[in-house]
Write a protein that binds this DNA or RNA. Sequence first.
DNA 1: AAGATGTTTCGAGATTTATCGAAGTAATGG
DNA 2: CCATTACTTCGATAAATCTCGAAACATCTT
Lengths: 112, 112
Amino acid sequence: MKATHADDLSLATAASTFAALGSEQRLAVLRCLVRAGPEGLRIGELGTRTGVTGSTLTHHMKILAAAGLVRQEKQGRSIICAAVAYPEIRALTDFLLAECCADAPDGDHAHG
Amino acid sequence: MKATHADDLSLATAASTFAALGSEQRLAVLRCLVRAGPEGLRIGELGTRTGVTGSTLTHHMKILAAAGLVRQEKQGRSIICAAVAYPEIRALTDFLLAECCADAPDGDHAHG
DNA sequence: AAGATGTTTCGAGATTTATCGAAGTAATGG
DNA sequence: CCATTACTTCGATAAATCTCGAAACATCTT
Protein backbone atom coordinates (compact mmCIF):
# COMPACT_ATOMS: atom_id res chain seq x y z
CA MET A 1 0.00 0.00 0.00
CA LYS A 2 1.24 3.38 -0.97
CA ALA A 3 1.81 5.85 1.85
CA THR A 4 0.01 9.12 1.35
CA HIS A 5 -1.48 11.90 3.40
CA ALA A 6 -4.60 9.82 3.43
CA ASP A 7 -3.04 7.76 6.17
CA ASP A 8 -3.36 10.79 8.40
CA LEU A 9 -7.12 10.71 8.18
CA SER A 10 -9.28 8.30 10.06
CA LEU A 11 -12.75 7.74 8.75
CA ALA A 12 -14.12 9.84 11.59
CA THR A 13 -11.76 12.71 10.94
CA ALA A 14 -12.46 12.65 7.25
CA ALA A 15 -16.18 12.63 7.90
CA SER A 16 -16.03 15.59 10.23
CA THR A 17 -13.86 17.52 7.81
CA PHE A 18 -16.35 16.83 5.06
CA ALA A 19 -19.12 17.89 7.39
CA ALA A 20 -17.30 21.14 8.02
CA LEU A 21 -17.28 21.73 4.28
CA GLY A 22 -20.85 20.54 3.95
CA SER A 23 -22.47 23.90 4.45
CA GLU A 24 -22.88 26.43 1.70
CA GLN A 25 -22.27 29.27 4.09
CA ARG A 26 -19.10 27.77 5.46
CA LEU A 27 -17.87 26.93 2.00
CA ALA A 28 -18.48 30.54 1.00
CA VAL A 29 -16.61 31.73 4.07
CA LEU A 30 -13.72 29.43 3.34
CA ARG A 31 -13.55 30.50 -0.25
CA CYS A 32 -13.62 34.11 0.81
CA LEU A 33 -10.69 33.49 3.11
CA VAL A 34 -8.73 31.54 0.57
CA ARG A 35 -9.17 34.31 -1.94
CA ALA A 36 -8.11 36.84 0.63
CA GLY A 37 -4.82 35.01 0.78
CA PRO A 38 -2.39 34.47 3.62
CA GLU A 39 -3.01 37.96 5.03
CA GLY A 40 -6.48 36.89 5.96
CA LEU A 41 -9.46 38.99 6.98
CA ARG A 42 -10.95 40.32 10.17
CA ILE A 43 -14.07 38.54 11.36
CA GLY A 44 -16.04 41.70 10.80
CA GLU A 45 -14.88 42.10 7.24
CA LEU A 46 -15.60 38.44 6.64
CA GLY A 47 -19.11 38.98 7.96
CA THR A 48 -19.60 41.96 5.69
CA ARG A 49 -18.42 40.12 2.62
CA THR A 50 -20.38 36.95 3.24
CA GLY A 51 -23.45 38.49 4.83
CA VAL A 52 -23.21 36.31 7.89
CA THR A 53 -24.05 37.70 11.32
CA GLY A 54 -21.40 38.01 14.01
CA SER A 55 -22.34 35.24 16.34
CA THR A 56 -23.23 32.92 13.50
CA LEU A 57 -19.89 33.57 11.93
CA THR A 58 -18.14 32.79 15.19
CA HIS A 59 -20.00 29.50 15.20
CA HIS A 60 -18.98 28.59 11.67
CA MET A 61 -15.41 29.67 12.20
CA LYS A 62 -15.13 27.36 15.17
CA ILE A 63 -16.17 24.46 13.03
CA LEU A 64 -13.78 25.36 10.25
CA ALA A 65 -10.99 25.88 12.75
CA ALA A 66 -11.69 22.58 14.48
CA ALA A 67 -11.39 20.90 11.12
CA GLY A 68 -8.05 22.60 10.69
CA LEU A 69 -9.23 24.48 7.63
CA VAL A 70 -8.68 27.97 8.98
CA ARG A 71 -6.52 29.64 11.54
CA GLN A 72 -7.48 32.51 13.82
CA GLU A 73 -5.04 34.91 15.29
CA LYS A 74 -5.70 37.74 17.64
CA GLN A 75 -4.35 41.05 16.47
CA GLY A 76 -5.27 43.98 18.64
CA ARG A 77 -9.00 43.86 19.09
CA SER A 78 -9.53 42.01 15.87
CA ILE A 79 -9.28 38.38 15.00
CA ILE A 80 -7.51 37.71 11.76
CA CYS A 81 -8.76 34.65 9.99
CA ALA A 82 -6.83 32.92 7.27
CA ALA A 83 -7.28 29.73 5.34
CA VAL A 84 -4.93 26.95 6.22
CA ALA A 85 -6.91 24.76 3.95
CA TYR A 86 -4.16 23.73 1.61
CA PRO A 87 -2.61 20.85 3.53
CA GLU A 88 -5.95 19.75 4.89
CA ILE A 89 -7.49 19.73 1.49
CA ARG A 90 -4.58 17.90 0.07
CA ALA A 91 -5.02 15.27 2.77
CA LEU A 92 -8.69 15.12 1.97
CA THR A 93 -8.23 14.70 -1.73
CA ASP A 94 -5.59 12.09 -1.05
CA PHE A 95 -8.03 10.35 1.23
CA LEU A 96 -10.70 10.34 -1.40
CA LEU A 97 -8.40 9.17 -4.11
CA ALA A 98 -6.83 6.50 -1.94
CA GLU A 99 -9.95 5.19 -0.27
CA CYS A 100 -12.34 5.57 -3.08
CA CYS A 101 -10.50 5.58 -6.33
CA ALA A 102 -7.60 3.33 -5.50
CA ASP A 103 -7.89 1.06 -8.47
CA ALA A 104 -9.93 3.21 -10.75
CA PRO A 105 -8.30 3.89 -14.06
CA ASP A 106 -8.05 7.50 -15.04
CA GLY A 107 -10.54 7.64 -17.84
CA ASP A 108 -13.90 5.97 -17.69
CA HIS A 109 -14.89 4.56 -14.33
CA ALA A 110 -17.29 2.05 -12.97
CA HIS A 111 -19.95 2.74 -15.46
CA GLY A 112 -20.92 -0.60 -16.51
CA MET B 1 -9.00 30.49 -16.27
CA LYS B 2 -8.38 26.82 -16.69
CA ALA B 3 -11.43 24.73 -17.45
CA THR B 4 -11.84 21.84 -15.07
CA HIS B 5 -14.57 19.67 -13.67
CA ALA B 6 -14.78 22.24 -10.91
CA ASP B 7 -16.84 24.32 -13.27
CA ASP B 8 -19.54 21.70 -13.00
CA LEU B 9 -19.97 22.34 -9.32
CA SER B 10 -21.82 25.27 -7.90
CA LEU B 11 -21.12 26.20 -4.33
CA ALA B 12 -24.44 24.71 -3.31
CA THR B 13 -23.80 21.45 -5.11
CA ALA B 14 -20.34 21.15 -3.67
CA ALA B 15 -21.66 21.83 -0.19
CA SER B 16 -24.33 19.20 -0.46
CA THR B 17 -21.89 16.68 -1.84
CA PHE B 18 -19.57 17.39 1.07
CA ALA B 19 -22.51 17.06 3.41
CA ALA B 20 -23.26 13.68 1.90
CA LEU B 21 -19.71 12.63 2.72
CA GLY B 22 -19.88 14.29 6.10
CA SER B 23 -21.16 11.30 8.00
CA GLU B 24 -18.96 8.55 9.26
CA GLN B 25 -21.60 5.96 8.53
CA ARG B 26 -22.12 7.12 4.99
CA LEU B 27 -18.41 7.32 4.41
CA ALA B 28 -18.09 3.76 5.66
CA VAL B 29 -20.89 2.69 3.35
CA LEU B 30 -19.29 4.41 0.41
CA ARG B 31 -15.92 2.88 1.14
CA CYS B 32 -17.51 -0.51 1.43
CA LEU B 33 -19.09 -0.06 -1.97
CA VAL B 34 -15.94 1.25 -3.55
CA ARG B 35 -14.02 -1.73 -2.26
CA ALA B 36 -16.70 -4.04 -3.55
CA GLY B 37 -15.91 -2.72 -7.00
CA PRO B 38 -18.11 -2.22 -10.02
CA GLU B 39 -20.11 -5.37 -9.30
CA GLY B 40 -21.54 -3.68 -6.25
CA LEU B 41 -23.43 -5.17 -3.36
CA ARG B 42 -26.99 -5.89 -2.44
CA ILE B 43 -28.50 -3.50 0.09
CA GLY B 44 -28.85 -6.38 2.52
CA GLU B 45 -25.23 -7.37 2.24
CA LEU B 46 -24.22 -3.75 2.64
CA GLY B 47 -26.29 -3.57 5.79
CA THR B 48 -24.68 -6.70 7.14
CA ARG B 49 -21.18 -5.43 6.45
CA THR B 50 -21.69 -1.98 7.83
CA GLY B 51 -24.07 -2.81 10.64
CA VAL B 52 -26.66 -0.34 9.49
CA THR B 53 -30.37 -1.15 9.77
CA GLY B 54 -32.53 -1.50 6.70
CA SER B 55 -34.52 1.70 6.73
CA THR B 56 -31.59 3.73 7.92
CA LEU B 57 -29.48 2.38 5.13
CA THR B 58 -32.15 3.27 2.62
CA HIS B 59 -32.04 6.78 4.00
CA HIS B 60 -28.28 7.07 3.68
CA MET B 61 -28.23 5.53 0.25
CA LYS B 62 -30.71 8.10 -0.95
CA ILE B 63 -28.40 10.84 0.16
CA LEU B 64 -25.39 9.26 -1.48
CA ALA B 65 -27.35 8.64 -4.64
CA ALA B 66 -28.68 12.19 -4.71
CA ALA B 67 -25.10 13.36 -4.51
CA GLY B 68 -24.30 11.14 -7.45
CA LEU B 69 -21.85 9.10 -5.45
CA VAL B 70 -23.58 5.78 -5.86
CA ARG B 71 -25.88 4.13 -8.30
CA GLN B 72 -28.71 1.73 -7.50
CA GLU B 73 -30.03 -0.80 -9.90
CA LYS B 74 -32.86 -3.22 -9.43
CA GLN B 75 -31.98 -6.80 -10.10
CA GLY B 76 -34.72 -9.26 -9.33
CA ARG B 77 -35.84 -8.57 -5.80
CA SER B 78 -32.53 -7.06 -4.84
CA ILE B 79 -31.08 -3.64 -5.30
CA ILE B 80 -27.50 -3.64 -6.41
CA CYS B 81 -25.56 -0.65 -5.18
CA ALA B 82 -22.29 0.41 -6.69
CA ALA B 83 -20.03 3.38 -6.23
CA VAL B 84 -20.03 5.87 -9.01
CA ALA B 85 -17.88 8.05 -6.91
CA TYR B 86 -14.96 8.38 -9.24
CA PRO B 87 -16.11 11.20 -11.49
CA GLU B 88 -17.91 12.94 -8.65
CA ILE B 89 -14.87 12.78 -6.48
CA ARG B 90 -12.70 13.98 -9.24
CA ALA B 91 -15.01 16.95 -9.68
CA LEU B 92 -14.90 17.55 -5.97
CA THR B 93 -11.15 17.46 -5.71
CA ASP B 94 -10.94 19.68 -8.73
CA PHE B 95 -13.35 22.04 -7.06
CA LEU B 96 -11.28 22.14 -3.93
CA LEU B 97 -8.06 22.61 -5.75
CA ALA B 98 -9.48 25.23 -8.05
CA GLU B 99 -11.49 27.20 -5.55
CA CYS B 100 -9.27 26.87 -2.59
CA CYS B 101 -5.77 26.16 -3.67
CA ALA B 102 -5.72 28.03 -6.93
CA ASP B 103 -2.59 30.00 -6.30
CA ALA B 104 -1.07 27.97 -3.54
CA PRO B 105 2.41 26.72 -4.26
CA ASP B 106 2.94 23.04 -3.87
CA GLY B 107 5.17 23.01 -0.87
CA ASP B 108 4.58 25.12 2.20
CA HIS B 109 1.26 26.96 2.29
CA ALA B 110 -0.22 29.86 4.13
CA HIS B 111 1.58 29.20 7.32
CA GLY B 112 2.26 32.62 8.36
C1' DA C 1 -12.11 56.05 33.62
C1' DA C 2 -15.40 56.41 29.92
C1' DG C 3 -16.59 55.44 25.30
C1' DA C 4 -16.08 53.12 21.01
C1' DT C 5 -15.03 48.98 18.44
C1' DG C 6 -14.61 43.99 17.55
C1' DT C 7 -15.65 39.42 18.83
C1' DT C 8 -17.56 35.84 21.79
C1' DT C 9 -20.89 33.71 24.95
C1' DC C 10 -25.52 32.83 26.29
C1' DG C 11 -30.26 31.52 25.72
C1' DA C 12 -33.76 30.25 22.70
C1' DG C 13 -36.58 29.04 18.70
C1' DA C 14 -36.69 26.81 14.23
C1' DT C 15 -35.12 23.53 11.10
C1' DT C 16 -32.74 19.49 9.77
C1' DT C 17 -30.88 14.98 10.40
C1' DA C 18 -30.56 10.30 12.44
C1' DT C 19 -32.65 6.34 13.90
C1' DC C 20 -35.93 2.91 14.70
C1' DG C 21 -39.90 -0.43 14.15
C1' DA C 22 -44.02 -1.57 11.84
C1' DA C 23 -46.48 -1.81 7.89
C1' DG C 24 -46.36 -1.60 2.74
C1' DT C 25 -44.69 -2.85 -2.00
C1' DA C 26 -42.35 -5.78 -5.32
C1' DA C 27 -40.41 -10.15 -7.07
C1' DT C 28 -39.71 -15.12 -6.76
C1' DG C 29 -41.04 -19.96 -5.55
C1' DG C 30 -44.18 -23.49 -4.23
C1' DC D 1 -52.79 -17.66 -4.66
C1' DC D 2 -49.92 -17.81 -0.35
C1' DA D 3 -45.42 -17.59 1.68
C1' DT D 4 -40.85 -15.81 1.59
C1' DT D 5 -37.38 -12.62 0.70
C1' DA D 6 -35.71 -7.89 -0.18
C1' DC D 7 -36.27 -3.35 0.18
C1' DT D 8 -38.92 1.08 0.94
C1' DT D 9 -42.24 4.17 3.02
C1' DC D 10 -44.42 5.94 7.01
C1' DG D 11 -44.69 7.87 11.54
C1' DA D 12 -42.52 9.14 15.48
C1' DT D 13 -38.83 10.44 18.68
C1' DA D 14 -34.29 11.99 19.86
C1' DA D 15 -30.41 14.59 18.80
C1' DA D 16 -27.79 17.87 16.29
C1' DT D 17 -27.33 22.11 13.76
C1' DC D 18 -28.55 26.87 12.27
C1' DT D 19 -29.61 31.24 13.35
C1' DC D 20 -30.47 35.24 15.83
C1' DG D 21 -30.25 39.16 19.26
C1' DA D 22 -28.80 40.69 23.64
C1' DA D 23 -25.45 40.92 26.83
C1' DA D 24 -20.64 40.13 28.18
C1' DC D 25 -15.80 40.55 27.37
C1' DA D 26 -11.54 42.49 25.65
C1' DT D 27 -8.96 46.13 23.47
C1' DC D 28 -7.82 50.52 21.97
C1' DT D 29 -8.61 55.81 22.13
C1' DT D 30 -9.12 59.97 24.40
